[in-house]
Each structure stands twice: as C-alpha cells, then as structure tokens.
Amino acid sequence: MSRARLEAELAELHGASFGWALACCRTDRGEAEEVLQATYLKVLDGRARFDGGSEFKTWLFAVIRRTAAERRRRSWMRALALDRWRAGHAEPTPVPDPERLASRSEAARRLRVSLRALPARQRELLHLVLYQELSLEEAAQVVGISVGSVRTHYHRAKIRLRRMLGEGGR
C-alpha cells in the first residue's frame, strides 16, 4: 500500500482510532495521543505492515492495542528500575480536566466510571463491539483470541456493566 493511500486510510479512521486508543490507555487523553502518534509512525515507516489478511480497521486497532501495551510495559520497567519511593508514583492516575468533565453528560460519566471498574478484557470487548460497532469476529481479531472466548467475555461484560449502571442509577 502506498504512503498516500495509508495516510488516507488513517485519516478516515482517525476518530475511531482515537476512541480505541483512549480505551487502551484507560481514558488518559495525553497517553492516547502519544500511542496514536507512535502507531501512525509505525504504519508509515513500514515497521507495521498491513498484509491484507483482514480489514484495515481491525489490523490498525490491533497495532494500536499492541503499541499501548508496549508503552505500558516500558513504563512499568522504568518504574521498577527507579527508586522504590518513585515506583509508587510512576503510573499516576490520570487527572481529568475539570472543563472536560463539566461538558460531559452524567450518563456518559457513569458509563466511563463503570467501564473503568471492569476487567481489561471485558472493557476492550465492550468497546470494540458497542462503541466501534465491530462484529464479534472482528473483535476477536483485534484482541487475538478465539470467537468463542470473545462471546463468553462479551456476554459476562454486558451483564456486569448493566448491573453496575443499575446500581449507580439508584
């Protein structure tokens, strides 16, 4: 695929990619931007090559997910290498911007809080299927597990999320 074509594909999927990067970075906007930037660089440099074996979107999402995981792993290694007192502060909880919080609706805020409480695998699958509107097969390709496992995790995630949203609404 030519560079111009790649850029066009990336531009088309930019909004969705940013949403997925946010989900991979636990809604830390700064980190999501860095992950997305690193992903674009990988794709345009040819370090990540699209072989046409799947949809471009699912392939790109898999690259974003891997890049976020690599980044997280590096942060952990750095935190381990640093002094013990610093290790506790190496992964600070992202502080949301108050203006951004104010502009968000209450329902969306509750949904985000509930999603954050879910296990990573369940959170990822809910995002891919309900937010990105991927099929279970496509979600399985992105996450790299079988469709059967995706179905099970997704089903459990929906039940759990509904319960949490119900509890939060009371």
């Binding site: 329902a107 969306a108 949904l111």
Partner: peptide, 10 residues
C-alpha cells in the same frame, strides 16, 4: 449509551 460516548470523544 456508547454512541453518546463516541460523540463526546469525537
């Protein structure tokens, strides 16, 4: 609910 989230993120 997720569609609302998507619009906000966009």
């Amino acid at each position: 609910a997720f569609a609302a989230l998507r619009r906000e993120d966009a």
